[in-house]
Design a binder for these strands. Structure first.
Lengths: 390, 390
DNA sequence: AGGATTAACTCAACCTTCTTGAGCTATCAA
DNA sequence: TTGATAGCTCAAGAAGGTTGAGTTAATCCT
């Protein structure tokens, strides 16, 4: 009668899988660590950790990294992640092209490729994704058995919502679950997410959010999205469309507009076009910024206030450790926005013992969504699954 | 080196506890159900479910509720929650008084009491909470062994933040974890939350959010708070202060103000006071509304737009199944607000197949936070814990 | 009406995984 | 050199879920 989320019971096998991820997660978090330390931190017995370590060594996911003497007692045999123990493929499907990349277990990018997208029909896209996946794994010299999975990024929102039309290219997927579809086509586990969520996870796997469990990523795509991470997990919303921050109302020039009407790549492009400047690429934007074109300066000035309001809203609604800005916007422009916003003086994010800044720029650059697609897979290796919705 | 959330490894015992909660959760969700149905839904074997059912029967948490024939095969032996199998105490600490209530396992309130609060020092409060807890359980005739735990509600935000001063009475707790403190004092498991979060859970246990997994509760307290539930779990933020929606900037009368400056109980009280009307209680507010005092009408008119913007923000950031309005505000006023807001025409919450309204009024009335305190305990019985932060 | 089919549930043996406690070993401190 | 400390392994044990055969009570079909 009442729907229930797909929470699943535990058994010995699932416990082991869960514990494997717990152990792997602690190895990653610590950098280098020994059995006893993991056992203390995870609530498992030393013996259990020992057995799992043996498993992980055999699978090549971790490697012995010397011995730490330091204190009293038997020295610690240390283990760390083995970057070549597993790889993830990230695929980003944009309207005009597909990007793909390969990440190792430590989040290092090995190769990245781009392929123009022809007709937008589903079978063609599927074939292109298959071909590109094969190409990047071959180029990286990664054996198929070592590929942990494929992350795929498509712009949201998902399903039929009041925002459809802005995400219209998604309509071709509506009779099948994209993750299932691609998993069948590729013969690998597949995770599908929107660009903002992927970008958020990218920063956790190899960017400025390493070690953070709760934060938000404000992603400049065609519009504006927010990837929300709480306790290391993405907040999806009831229908997978959480984080559509582009549509929140903000004050601008005396009126109220959707945030992405004044803070987004499309918005700056239109602003420049109205002034007779045509920008197509990120380089064009960077040039316009460097030249201090009045249209660019105006746009930046107009963006600061609505952006500040959005940041205040994020801070007070989500209480993140930090907010990260990134995506398809040149770093210099992101830095300028970072410097020009006013962070609220009344906010739950003001605390004496802060260790991270309230606002940061993402480290992954323009490929952040593609990297994030792969990072979703890597991140899942470290994120225990029992009791989590799938 | 990198902090890690307290995710814990699984073992046989913890698996059993997890599975118990899964089974109990399914019994609750279904109302009445049999072993095989639970097994199918939970990924456990019939035998495992059978053993757990036997446990739950012995503990009195469920009871046999007849047999369902219907289809082919052996008729289903059905089980449902046994309301008298377990109870939860809810305590709400307000600046001037303490409220307490007892809820049975089905979320039914048995007794509620109030006690004036004298000096605000910690030991006095603790003694008062102890006394009141003993009083309500005695009044409800609940044996100590059947009390599952105590939920305690104190106004947020927690810790030292940029909002301190508004929640200054919390400062007395800062050298000790309140949950640990009260747990030691009461000899029972204790959950501490803020009022908005408790109210959100109250609606899930016995209000309009039954069966919902992802929603938000906009709580009128002294200020304004938002309880955010995702997949049946509260979103706390990095420091437990998520949902401080009162501080998000909204447009009002041409300017930008914090939401709770125009939409909150304090705001309406000040608005009326400025017009010479003194309101102290909810009944006073109701009278002012019934009398259609101009000050009240003005306030309602002025509240609609900022509230609408806040709702649009919630919808697009969190993609909830619904947003619930409730708390310390008379139902008639909440209903008026519900009717007067304009829900955005561009929102991820617009979908063809909606089964719940986008906006609802809470069912728990003015005691919602106290009930919610107890509901936190009840809710925990049904929420699997492995892999969840504590 | 009566056998076939279906589905829920139980029983008992088995399997996986974690825990426990004894024992070994390498380091530091006295 | 000896004792204390702490990491780690070994082997036995315990907890709990799974499996497959068997029982029971309905409906379906001839």
């Amino acid at each position: 009668m009442i729907a229930m989320s797909n929470i699943v019971g535990a058994n010995a096998e699932r416990s082991r899988s869960h514990n494997r991820q717990v152990v792997l997660g602690r190895v990653r978090a610590a950098g280098q660590t020994g059995r006893a330390e993991i056992a203390r931190g995870s609530g498992l017995s030393t013996q259990a950790v020992s057995n799992i370590i043996a498993d992980l060594l055999e699978d090549g996911l971790i490697a012995e990294q010397g011995v730490r003497a330091g204190g009293r007692g038997l020295p610690v045999v240390q283990y760390g992640l083995n970057p070549s123990g597993g790889y993830a493929v990230g695929v980003e499907i944009r309207p005009d092209a597909i990007f793909a990349t390969v990440l190792d277990l430590c989040g290092q990018a090995l190769v990245s490729e781009r392929q123009a997208l022809g007709a937008g029909d589903r079978d063609q896209i599927t074939a292109d994704v298959q071909a590109l996946t094969a190409r990047v794994t071959a180029a990286a010299g990664v054996p198929h058995a070592r590929v942990l999975g494929v992350g795929i990024v498509m712009p949201g929102p998902f399903g039929l919502t009041g925002l459809s039309g802005s995400g219209s290219e998604l309509l071709v997927w509506q009779d099948v679950t994209p993750a299932k579809w691609f998993s069948d086509a590729l013969g690998l586990p597949v995770i599908v997410e929107n660009d903002a969520n992927a970008a958020a996870v990218a920063e956790r796997v190899s960017g400025v959010a390493q070690g953070l469990e709760t934060y938000a990523f404000l992603y400049f795509g065609s519009g504006l999205g927010l990837g929300i991470v709480q306790n290391g997990r993405l907040i999806a919303g009831a229908y997978g469309n959480a984080g559509e921050i582009g549509h929140i109302p903000v004050p601008s020039a005396g009126g109220i507009v959707p945030l992405e009407a004044v803070v987004s790549r499309l918005s700056v492009q239109e602003h420049l076009r109205a002034a007779g400047v045509h920008v197509a690429s990120g380089a064009d934007l960077e040039a316009a910024f460097a030249a201090q074109l009045p249209a660019m300066t105006n746009w930046l000035g107009a963006a600061a206030e609505p952006l500040s309001h959005a940041l205040t809203t994020i801070e007070n609604l989500l209480d993140p450790e930090t907010i990260i800005l990134g995506g398809a916007m040149p770093d210099v422009i992101l830095d300028h926005l970072l410097a020009s916003v006013t962070l609220a003086e009344r906010s739950v994010s003001i605390r004496a013992a802060r260790t991270t800044p309230r606002l940061m720029r993402g480290a992954s650059g323009r490929m952040t969504a593609t990297l994030g697609a792969a990072a979703l897979v890597i991140n899942q290796e470290f994120t225990p699954q029992i009791a989590a919705a799938s």
